[in-house]
Structures are given as structure tokens and as C-alpha cells.
Simulated scan of single mutants.
Amino acid sequence: MFESIYRSIELGKESFEVIRKDKEILLFPVLSGIACIIFVSLMIVPALIAGTVFGSTMDNPVILYGGLFVFYLITSFIVVFFNTALVTCAHIRLTGKDPTFHDGISNATKHIGRIFAWAVVSATVGVILSVIRDESNIIGQIIISMIGMAWGLLTYFVIPVMILEDLGIASSIKESASLFRKTWGESIVGPGSISIIFVLIGLVALLPLAIIVLIGNATLTIIGIAGYVLLIVVLAIVASALQGVFNTALYIYAKTGKVPESFSPELVQTAFVPKKGRMGPGTI
């Protein structure tokens, strides 16, 4: 546990040094979050109207999963679009150049067709896994979760491969899987994450909020809740930006075999958590 926290802190510090030089990187998760909030808000009204008009018809699996697909598709497109911009700027910085906000948006716009195609693939896989998970018992749900994790790892580098190597979706998935297996092998259970420390900060911040609520002052409670929500939003934005920068560094290492100067070789080379009892090159 303490080792994971230490790694999260170190990853965060090294990724932050990159963002400190290019603060515009923080704008991409901000814009992504705003766009997603707007989309969800626009979906709520039609969903409520549909539920009122059609009633139990909304329980129809076709309508339910159709709506889920649309939700996955649009949110995936938004997130991938701004992640593309973020990865573009991070890659420019990590390869020794000075990126601009326009560089990120311009490259994302250039690849908008492929971004949409990848969003369709992601939404399709997400809905299929959701359908199977909903129809499965506990063992089936565990298996589906493992399949989902495996899919996430094999497609870990799809975005940088797609936008930096100008490959199509199928070729990007194949190249992503190849880079991952070649660099870290197959005996891993998941990636190390920068977000651990941010989750802990969020949990610790619950303590003063709980004290404020227990005091019973309505004004203080509203201020406390508003402050906590703002804190969570800020933490999410920073964590997303830091993780995007680190993932780009991992891609550069996987592609070239060289660790970007901004990062420690040990953190990059052991970025993924090995299965218990499996250590050494090619098994992490």
C-alpha cells in the first residue's frame, strides 16, 4: 500500500514538471469535463420526457442499451478528442519541443474521423460487456471484468498510435497490443496509477466536511459541500492531465526503448503491476 502511494507521488511529481512547462495541457481535461457535463445535462431532459411518455417501455432492453450506446459513444468521443489534444502536446514536449494549445486542438481536429471511429468501437465493446455482465452471475461478472481489463491493457496505446503514427483503428489496436506485449509482457494485472494519491486526498478531505455537517450550521454545510465538490473537480482535472502525460511517456518508451528525460527509468520500466510471483523483464 505504502509503495503504491510512494509511486503515485513520484509519478505525479515527474508528470507535473512537464505540465509546469506547458500549463495549457490542463485546459484539455477542463474542456473535456465541461463538454461531458453539457452533454449529460442535455440528455437528462429527453430521458425524463421519454420515461414519462413511454413509461415501462423504457425497461425494454433495446431502448435501454440503445441509450447506453449513445451515451458511451458521445462521452467517449468527447474524452478521446481532448485526450488526443493532450497526448499531442505532451508528446511534443517530451520530444524536446514547445507545444501550444493550438497544436493539440489542431491535431485532434485533423484526426476527428478516426477519433469517432474509435469512440464507436469503445462504445460497442462497453455495451456488449455491460449486457453480458448484467446477465451473468457473480463468477461471470468476475470473468467479464477480467476481459474488460485485458481489453483496456491491449488498447492502452491506441490513441497515441492512432494520432502519432496515422494508423487506422484495426492497425492501431494491433500495434498497441504489440507494443504492450513487447515492452511489458503479458503477466501483469494492471497499471500503476497517479490517481491513488488524489483519491487519498479526497478521502482525507471528507473528515473536515463531516465535522462541518455535524456542527449543524446550514450556511457552513453548504459552503463545505460546495468547497468539497470544487476540490474533487480540481483533483480530477489535475490527475487526468498528469496521467495523460505519463501515458505518453510510456508510449515513447514502448516505441523507442528510450525513457523521456523528464521521467525516471525505474518508474517507466516498472509502470505496470506484475502478477503475484511473476517478476523480471517481459513479465511486468
Rank of each mutant, 00 (worst) to 15 (best):
G96S: 13
A271L: 03
P281Y: 08
L250S: 08
F28Y: 15
E266H: 11
V238G: 07
L235E: 07
F2G: 02
D166Q: 08
D98V: 15
I115V: 11
S262D: 14
L154C: 09
I237W: 02
S41I: 09
F82G: 05
T100M: 03
L200M: 14
I92R: 14
L129C: 05
K23R: 12
V79C: 00
L207V: 07
N247L: 05
S122Q: 12
R93S: 15
K13M: 13
E165H: 14
F16K: 05
K13C: 09
V87I: 15
E186R: 13
V199I: 05
V245C: 03
V158A: 06
F16W: 15
S15T: 03
I194G: 06
M1K: 02
I147S: 01
E3C: 00
E175L: 15
A85R: 02
L167F: 11
L11I: 09
V18E: 10
I284W: 00
Q243F: 03
Y228C: 10
S262C: 08
Y72I: 10
I132E: 09
A236C: 02
I147Q: 05
M162V: 02
M43H: 09
S176D: 12
I37G: 07
L64W: 11
Y72N: 11
S264H: 07
L31R: 01
D98Q: 15
P260G: 01
A170R: 15
S195I: 09
A177C: 02
W151Q: 08
I25M: 15
A50H: 00
N60D: 15
P160R: 13
W151T: 14
L11H: 08
V213N: 00
V125N: 04
L11Y: 13
G126T: 10
S176A: 11
T75P: 11
G66A: 07
I225K: 01
